[in-house]
Simulated assay, not measured.
Amino acid sequence: MPRLALKYRMILLFAGLASLTFAHPAAAETIDCANAMATVELNFCADKEYQAADKALNAEYALALKSVRSRTLERPYDAKSAEDALKTAQRAWIAYRDADCKGVVAQVWTNGTGATSAILMCMTDKTQQRTKELNAQFQEN
Results as ranks from 00 to 15, higher is better:
Pro2Gly: 12
Arg3Gly: 07
Arg3Gln: 05
Arg3Val: 00
Arg3Tyr: 08
Ala5Pro: 03
Lys7Glu: 03
Tyr8Glu: 10
Met10Tyr: 11
Ile11Glu: 11
Leu13Pro: 02
Leu13Met: 13
Leu13Gln: 10
Phe14Gly: 08
Phe14Asp: 08
Leu17Tyr: 13
Ala18Gly: 15
Ser19Phe: 09
Leu20Glu: 13
His24Cys: 12
Ala26His: 07
Ala27Gln: 14
Ala27Lys: 11
Ala28Pro: 07
Glu29Asn: 09
Cys33Asp: 09
Ala34Leu: 04
Ala34Val: 01
Ala34His: 11
Ala36Gly: 07
Met37His: 13
Met37Ala: 10
Ala38Cys: 08
Val40Leu: 04
Val40Ile: 10
Phe44Pro: 01
Phe44Gln: 02
Ala46Leu: 05
Asp47Ala: 06
Lys48Cys: 03
Lys48Gly: 00
Gln51Ser: 08
Gln51Ala: 14
Gln51Arg: 11
Gln51Tyr: 02
Ala52Arg: 10
Asp54Val: 06
Lys55Gln: 05
Ala56Asp: 12
Leu57Asn: 05
Glu60Gln: 14
Tyr61Met: 12
Tyr61Trp: 15
Leu63Gly: 01
Leu63Cys: 02
Leu65Met: 15
Ser67Met: 10
Ser67Asn: 11
Val68Arg: 00
Arg69Cys: 06
Arg69Trp: 06
Ser70Trp: 00
Ser70Arg: 05
Arg71Tyr: 10
Leu73Tyr: 09
Leu73Ala: 15
Tyr77Ser: 13
Asp78Glu: 07
Asp78Leu: 08
Asp78Asn: 10
Ala79Tyr: 02
Ala82Met: 03
Ala82Lys: 00
Ala82His: 03
Glu83Phe: 08
Ala85Trp: 00
Ala85Met: 06
Ala85Leu: 04
Leu86Tyr: 01
Leu86Cys: 03
Lys87Tyr: 02
Thr88Met: 06
Arg91Leu: 12
Arg91Ala: 13
Ile94Asp: 01
Asp98Tyr: 03
Ala99Cys: 12
Ala99Ile: 09
Ala99Pro: 06
Ala99Arg: 15
Asp100Val: 09
Lys102His: 06
Lys102Glu: 11
Lys102Asn: 14
Ala106Trp: 01
Trp109Asn: 06
Gly112Phe: 04
Gly114Trp: 02
Gly114Glu: 03
Gly114Met: 05
Ala115Met: 13
Ala115Glu: 13
Thr116Lys: 02
Ser117Asn: 02
Ile119Leu: 02
Met121Trp: 01
Cys122Pro: 00
Met123Gln: 13
Met123Ile: 07
Asp125Val: 08
Lys126Trp: 04
Lys126Gln: 13
Thr127Met: 04
Gln128Lys: 08
Gln129Ala: 14
Gln129Thr: 15
Arg130Ser: 03
Arg130Thr: 09
Thr131Ser: 13
Lys132Ser: 06
Glu133Ser: 05
Gln137Trp: 07
Phe138Val: 07
Phe138Pro: 01
Gln139Leu: 11
Gln139Ile: 12
Gln139Tyr: 08
Asn141Tyr: 03
